[in-house]
Design a protein around this nucleic acid. Sequence first.
DNA 1: CTGTAATGATAAGAATAATAAACATTAGCG
DNA 2: CGCTAATGTTTATTATTCTTATCATTACAG
Lengths: 106, 106
Amino acid sequence: MSRKLHLPIPARKALKKLGKDIRDARLRRRIGTELMAERAGFSRITLNKIEQGDSGVSVGGYVSALFVLGMLDRLKDIADARHDLIGLMLEEERLPKRIRAPKAEK
Amino acid sequence: MSRKLHLPIPARKALKKLGKDIRDARLRRRIGTELMAERAGFSRITLNKIEQGDSGVSVGGYVSALFVLGMLDRLKDIADARHDLIGLMLEEERLPKRIRAPKAEK
DNA sequence: CTGTAATGATAAGAATAATAAACATTAGCG
DNA sequence: CGCTAATGTTTATTATTCTTATCATTACAG
């Protein structure tokens, strides 16, 4: 986001929790911020932002942190179709490749 | 990441899958790229990058997209302690607030 | 309790992400 | 099957992140 993205409250909360969980996981493993940042390939400051749930940090940073902690697995299923209840209800046929607006009523 | 972060293969794969899943979820809901981008608060181009699993996009973009799709729930548990098997094995006592290197042997 | 190393915070500069505009491509309605 | 609107791409510009360096704070070992 170049222009600061105004994130809805629940989204911001989810990020905060994620950051805190990442921090706790690091502490459980007794890894210092310096070492952790080095392994993940970014600076201590960026790690700090991640652990605070900063929404501006690139997704690569978060993913890299999760990778270092060995917690990448669950990420893959976040938006997996199997868990998309809303989507399953809507799906009636094969997915289109484009969304076309229905012809306006005369 | 200002300096392009070199992401390990599994991490990159996870992001690619996430992007694809987000795209499929959008299609299932019959939401066009323009409308989706507008609701999420960013441009069509950024949505495109997200759906391709671009690691440079800010995490806020991804989270906002998940929010629009109503798929925020699972995000919160990605790194939750309850699922941190490695961490649970390591945890023996109360978590420290800082990680201190053990005194070097003389 | 005390000293010290780990963490948090701040500022300035380099690198990159995000946007808008315009054009090329292509899916799918009719 | 053809037309049109939806999507993909490129370029130039702007805004913001990420980094390095430095200083302040504080938790922990001894």
